[in-house]
C-alpha cells in the first residue's frame, strides 16, 4: 500500500460533494450511490491516521446541508457507521476481496437502515425497497475507489 496524502483525501471528498450536488433526474435519483459515505469509508479504512470519526461527521453535516434534510441526520448515521467500520479496521488486511466487499455492504446497509429509522422518526413514509438500491451502486463505487487508490487487503505474494 502506497502512502496517502491528505490532499488526495480532501480532493476526493470535494469531488464526492460535487457528485452529490449533481442534478440527478429520473432513475438516477433512485440509483445514485451515497458518494460521500463510500469515499469517507474508503479513507477511513485505508488511512485512519488521516481520516477519523470526526471527518465522517463533517462529511455528514455537508451532506445534510446539501440535501436540505434535518441538520445532523446524515452526520449521526455517518458517525455511527464510521465507528463500526473503524472497530474492525486493523483486521481488514487479512480479508479477501469478497469478504471486504461483504463488510462494506454490511456497513452501507447499516447506514441506510439508520437513515430510514431517523426519517421514519421524523414522520416520513417508508419509500419502498428501491430505497436500498444505492447500497449496490455504492459497492460499485467502492470497487472504483479500490481501482483508483489501491486495495485494502494484502497483495498476493505467491
Amino acid at each position: 500500500m502506497r502512502p496517502i496524502s491528505l490532499v488526495a483525501v480532501i480532493i476526493t471528498l470535494l469531488i464526492a460533494l460535487i457528485c452529490q450536488l449533481f442534478p440527478w433526474v429520473g432513475q438516477g435519483v433512485i440509483l445514485r450511490p451515497d458518494f460521500m459515505l463510500v469515499v469517507i469509508l474508503y479513507w477511513l479504512l485505508r488511512a485512519p491516521n488521516l481520516c477519523n470519526v470526526g471527518t465522517a461527521w463533517i462529511a455528514g453535516i455537508l451532506v445534510d446541508l446539501a440535501t436540505g434534510s434535518l441538520l445532523g441526520q446524515h452526520a449521526l448515521s455517518f458517525t455511527l457507521t464510521a465507528y463500526i467500520g473503524l472497530s474492525y479496521q486493523r483486521r481488514l488486511v487479512l480479508f479477501n476481496p469478497w469478504q471486504l466487499a461483504g463488510y462494506v455492504f454490511g456497513l452501507l446497509i447499516f447506514e441506510r437502515l439508520l437513515m430510514l429509522f431517523l426519517k421514519l422518526f421524523e414522520g416520513n413514509d417508508y419509500p419502498g425497497w428501491t430505497y436500498f438500491l444505492p447500497v449496490f451502486s455504492g459497492l460499485i463505487l467502492w470497487q472504483l475507489m479500490i481501482l483508483m487508490f489501491g486495495a485494502l487487503t494484502r497483495p498476493k505474494t505467491r
Binding site: 477519523n52 470519526v53 470526526g54 461527521w57 455528514g60 445532523g72 452526520a75 449521526l76 465507528y83 472497530s87
Partner: peptide, 18 residues
C-alpha cells in the same frame, strides 16, 4: 474512536433537536 463517536453522536442529536 469510541469517545469520538459518543461526542459526535451527541453533537448531531443536539443539532437535530435544535
Amino acid at each position: 474512536p469510541f469517545s469520538r463517536m459518543v461526542f459526535f453522536c451527541a453533537l448531531s442529536i443536539t443539532m437535530m433537536a435544535i
